[in-house]
Design a binder for these strands. Sequence first.
DNA 1: TGCCAATACGTGTTATAACAGCTATTGTTG
DNA 2: CAACAATAGCTGTTATAACACGTATTGGCA
Lengths: 155, 155
Amino acid sequence: MPGRLQAEIKQNKPFPHPPAEALLSILRTAAVLEHHLGEGLKSYGITTTQYNVLRILRGAGQNGMCGREVAERLVSRVPDVSRLLDRMEELGLIKRDRDPEDRRHVTARIKEKGLAVLEQATPELEALVLRRFSRLDPEGLQRLIAALEDVRSVG
Amino acid sequence: MPGRLQAEIKQNKPFPHPPAEALLSILRTAAVLEHHLGEGLKSYGITTTQYNVLRILRGAGQNGMCGREVAERLVSRVPDVSRLLDRMEELGLIKRDRDPEDRRHVTARIKEKGLAVLEQATPELEALVLRRFSRLDPEGLQRLIAALEDVRSVG
DNA sequence: TGCCAATACGTGTTATAACAGCTATTGTTG
DNA sequence: CAACAATAGCTGTTATAACACGTATTGGCA
């Protein structure tokens, strides 16, 4: 079998070595998933990054969280959290207040509208994710997770 | 073990279910790899997307390739190939000529400078990739590739 | 206390991604 | 052959990512 990723990106030559194929597999799969998730969220008017921020802030509850903490918890590094939160505040999804204890911090909290969007969008995303991974059994999932963990932990 | 991805993104609660963890693993790993590759390419003045285009055009040889074909072969979907190729032409990496056979097509070809950049950058990237995947044995690599293939092929 | 580094944000700017719409060229079909 | 659809590419615009730098606030230390 010539490998389906080769067909997907219309590559004729065989891959020089498996690590390169694995690399491309990861990048391409992530691109596909990101695109798919983005499409699913489009009707809610938010991006995947914004969805993640909402989940993070919901997890923080009424205490809220400052911008740096949000940035640390994001899946992919975002060097411009200020304006990301700006936009979300404009959309009415979150609010921000300067922390009176340490006036350098700005504490962000999720608002009702943000919670509502999260609750509406999540079931759809869950279903989407379940379908995506439906061909992998529990053991396959764990192996996949562990392998990716190995890739990241090399640094 | 509480799972290292949870520590990485400072998540305290356990993941609701393995597919969600797998999804985040893929997205996060891709982000890390993309960033890492981007850093490696920075000294050559090109992005990972441009590097991919150079590889694609080198593969096409003197026949070159039209923009639509390049787009199809890219790892992640790029809806704006015209300006991507614009920039690469400005950098002197490629050249473009309108195809006299079918004047709708614009055939792109790699230039000497593009080949030179490719030859300089590739060994560094290869080393980087090999190190990244060094903790996976051949079987682990094949399983990873197959699992990601399963995820993509659900559509 | 006064200086200085560190921290957390904000801002300015450029580059690129994403989306929609437009033009030129070719193929198709009545 | 004329009209029309399909294809390939370009352009305009907005939004976002990425980077560098500036500002306010705090904490540490001589």
